[in-house]
Deep mutational scan, measured.
Amino acid sequence: MTEYKLVVVGAGGVGKSALTIQLIQNHFVDEYDPTIEDSYRKQVVIDGETCLLDILDTAGQEEYSAMRDQYMRTGEGFLCVFAINNTKSFEDIHHYREQIKRVKDSEDVPMVLVGNKCDLPSRTVDTKQAQDLARSYGIPFIETSAKTRQGVDDAFYTLVREIRKHKEKMSKDGKKKKKKSKTKCVIM
Rank of each mutant, 00 (worst) to 15 (best):
E63L: 02
E63V: 02
Y64T: 13
Y64M: 09
Y64K: 10
Y64W: 10
Y64C: 10
Y64L: 06
S65D: 11
S65H: 07
S65M: 03
A66S: 11
A66D: 13
A66V: 12
A66K: 06
A66M: 08
M67V: 07
M67I: 11
R68M: 03
R68G: 06
D69F: 01
D69S: 04
Q70D: 13
Y71R: 08
Y71F: 08
Y71W: 07
M72V: 09
M72R: 02
M72C: 11
R73D: 11
R73W: 05
T74R: 08
T74G: 12
T74M: 10
T74K: 10
T74C: 09
G75V: 13
G75N: 05
G75E: 02
G75Y: 11
E76S: 15
E76F: 13
E76H: 15
E76M: 15
E76Y: 14
G77L: 13
G77W: 00
G77C: 05
G77H: 01
F78D: 00
F78L: 06
L79R: 00
L79C: 04
C80A: 03
C80K: 01
C80N: 02
C80R: 01
C80Y: 06
V81A: 08
V81Q: 06
F82E: 02
F82R: 01
F82Y: 11
F82M: 14
F82H: 10
A83W: 01
A83K: 07
A83H: 13
A83P: 15
A83Y: 03
I84Q: 15
I84W: 13
I84A: 15
I84K: 13
N86R: 03
N86V: 02
N86S: 09
T87P: 15
K88R: 11
K88C: 11
K88L: 10
F90V: 12
F90G: 05
E91S: 08
E91R: 05
E91V: 03
D92R: 05
H94M: 14
H95P: 02
H95Q: 11
H95A: 14
Y96S: 02
R97D: 02
R97V: 15
E98G: 02
Q99D: 03
I100L: 10
K101L: 12
K101W: 05
R102P: 01
R102S: 09
R102G: 07
R102M: 06
R102N: 08
V103H: 12
V103L: 14
K104H: 14
K104N: 15
D105Y: 04
D105I: 05
D105L: 05
D105P: 07
D105C: 11
D105N: 12
S106Y: 11
S106A: 10
S106D: 09
S106K: 09
S106W: 11
E107Y: 14
E107I: 12
E107T: 12
E107A: 10
D108M: 07
D108T: 06
D108H: 09
D108L: 05
D108G: 06
V109Y: 08
V109M: 05
P110V: 03
P110T: 03
M111K: 02
M111F: 11
M111Y: 02
M111D: 00
M111E: 00
M111S: 00
M111A: 01
V112W: 01
L113W: 09
L113G: 01
L113C: 06
L113M: 06
L113T: 01
L113D: 00
L113S: 01
L113P: 00
V114Y: 02
V114P: 00
G115I: 12
G115N: 03
G115Q: 03
N116V: 15
N116E: 06
N116R: 00
K117Y: 14
C118A: 10
C118D: 10
D119K: 03
D119E: 09
D119T: 09
D119A: 08
D119Q: 05
D119P: 03
L120S: 12
L120M: 12
P121L: 09
S122C: 08
S122T: 11
S122E: 12
S122Q: 07
R123A: 13
R123I: 07
R123M: 11
T124W: 06
V125F: 09
V125E: 12
V125P: 09
V125T: 11
V125W: 09
D126C: 07
D126P: 05
D126S: 10
